[in-house]
Design a protein around this nucleic acid. Structure first.
Lengths: 232, 232
DNA sequence: TGTACATCAGTGAACGCGCGTTCACTGATGTAC
DNA sequence: TGTACATCAGTGAACGCGCGTTCACTGATGTAC
C-alpha cells in the first residue's frame, strides 16, 4: 500500500468502509473486465486499506463479487424504471426503458456482461414462468412469489413484461402474448447489447433505430413516439 | 501427475502432442467455462505430461488459448458451411446454417461464449464493412482483403451475408440490404444463443420456431422449407 | 550385423509471484466514574 | 474536569497454494560407419 495512511472511520461508521469496498470492487470489475481480476487484495489496494480489513465486513472474497452482481441487476432495473417521465404513454415508457437498457449495457459493458456470466446465478435461476396461453391478455403480472435465490434477474425482466402488457391495455400494442413477446424483445436487445460490446467497431444500426424496429416487430407496438433526444 | 507414465511419441511425431495440448485446452475450457481456469498446468495434467513439456510446442500459455479461440471460430464457420445438402435452395441453406449456429452455441456453450469474450479479439476486430446503400443489391460479397489480425470472426459472419444475398438472388428474400439484414439476423441469433446459455431454465421459444420467425422478420425470407428433423 | 553416438521428446526440481485467509496486535475513539 | 479503561476499526506478518516459466537433465529412438 502506498500513499498516506488512511483516515480511520469513527465508531459506528464501520459500514462506510463496507460501501467503499463494494464500490471499489465494482470499479475494478468495470476497469479490468474480468471477474477473476477483482481479487481481494486488488480491492484492498483500490480502497487504500490492508487486505485483512475486508474481513470485518465480508466473510470472503466471493461474497463481495456476489453482492456486486446483485447490485448491478438492481441498478439496471432502477435505470429502466427511472427512464420515463410519469405522464408518458405506455409505448413511450417501453421505448424509454428499452433505450435505458441499451445505454446501461453500452456505458458499463463489463458490468452488463457480468450479469449474464455468473455460473451460480445461471444454475440457480429458476423458471420465470411458463408461456401464457394467448387466449386473453391476463398475464400474471401482479406480485409473484419471490424465490429466495437471486430474484434480481427476474424482477428486471418483469419490468419489460409489465410495460408491454400496459401497451396492450392502452391499445398501443397488438401483442397476443405479452410475456412471449417481451422474451423476444429481450432477445433482440440482449443480442444488440452483447454484439456492440464484443465488436465495438462492427457496423450495427443505431440504437434508437434498432430499438424502434424491435418494438414494432417483436413487441407489436403500433404507435411509437418520435425520439426527442439524441442517441448513439 | 498420476497413472502410468505416458508413452513418448516417436521421432518426427512431436506434433501429435501439440494437437493433444490444443484438444485438452479446448476440453478444459468447455468443462470449466472459464478461460482463467485453463492454466498451463491444468492442460498438462489433462494431457498427462509434465508442465514444461508444453514449451516444446507453444511459446507460452496465452498462445494456446489464442489458438483455441481461432479454432473455435473456424469450427463454427465449418459447421455453418457443412449444414446443408448441396442441392438445397438458398433459403434452405440459410435455415440450415442458422440452426447449425444455434446448435453450436447450445452444445458448446462455453466455447461459444469465449468467441465473444476475448478482449484482444474485441479490440483488434476491424470494421467489417460499412452499411451498403440499399439502392441495389450489390453488396461486396466477393473475396475481401483479409486483414492479418484475426479474420476468423469476419469470415464466419460473411457466411450469413452470402447466404442471405443468395436468397435475394433466388427471389426467396425481399431484403433490400442483405448486409444490414444479416446483421439484424445475427443480433437475433446471438441474443437467443446467449440468453439460452445464461438462463437454461428460462422459457425461450424453441430454436426452430425462433429461427423461422427471425428469418422471416429480419431476413425478409418469403419461402421457408418445413423442418424435416427435430430440434430443441 | 554390431556399436558408438547424435538427436530429440519429454522430465523433475526449483524460482518468484500474487493469491485468500489466519492470527495476534495496535492505537485512536468513546465511556464510566 | 480528569483519568483509567473498554471498545472497535484497522494493521503487519505469516501461512500454504497454484501459478507461469527456467534450467539442467535423461533416456529412448534413430543413424553413421
Amino acid at each position: 500500500m502506498t500513499g498516506p495512511p488512511r483516515q480511520r472511520n469513527r465508531r459506528g461508521e464501520g459500514s462506510k468502509l463496507r460501501a467503499e469496498i463494494l464500490d471499489a470492487a465494482a470499479d475494478l470489475l468495470e476497469e479490468t473486465g474480468s471477474e477473476q481480476e477483482v481479487t481481494l487484495r486488488a480491492i484492498a489496494r483500490h480502497v487504500g486499506i490492508a487486505a485483512p480489513s475486508i474481513y470485518e465486513h465480508f466473510p470472503n472474497r466471493d461474497a463481495i463479487v456476489q453482492e456486486v452482481v446483485d447490485r448491478a441487476f438492481i441498478d439496471l432495473r432502477l435505470a429502466l424504471q427511472g427512464a420515463w417521465r410519469p405522464e408518458t404513454t405506455p409505448a413511450g415508457k417501453l421505448q424509454a426503458a428499452g433505450l435505458a437498457y441499451l445505454t446501461y449495457a453500452q456505458e458499463q459493458p463489463n458490468r452488463y456482461r457480468l450479469l449474464f456470466a455468473r455460473r451460480d446465478l445461471i444454475d440457480s435461476e429458476p423458471t420465470i414462468g411458463p408461456h401464457q396461453p394467448a387466449a386473453d391478455n391476463s398475464v400474471p403480472l401482479g406480485p409473484r412469489p419471490l424465490l429466495p435465490a437471486r430474484p434480481a434477474p427476474r424482477e428486471t425482466f418483469l419490468v419489460l413484461v409489465n410495460l408491454l402488457a400496459a401497451c396492450v391495455d392502452a391499445g398501443q400494442s397488438t401483442s397476443a402474448d405479452p410475456f412471449g413477446d417481451a422474451v423476444t424483445l429481450w432477445i433482440a436487445m440482449h443480442g444488440y447489447a452483447m454484439l456492440r460490446i464484443s465488436f465495438p467497431q462492427f457496423p450495427l444500426p443505431k440504437s434508437d433505430e434498432f430499438l424502434d424496429r424491435a418494438l414494432r416487430e417483436q413487441g407489436h407496438l403500433t404507435e411509437l413516439p418520435a425520439w426527442t433526444w439524441p442517441t448513439a
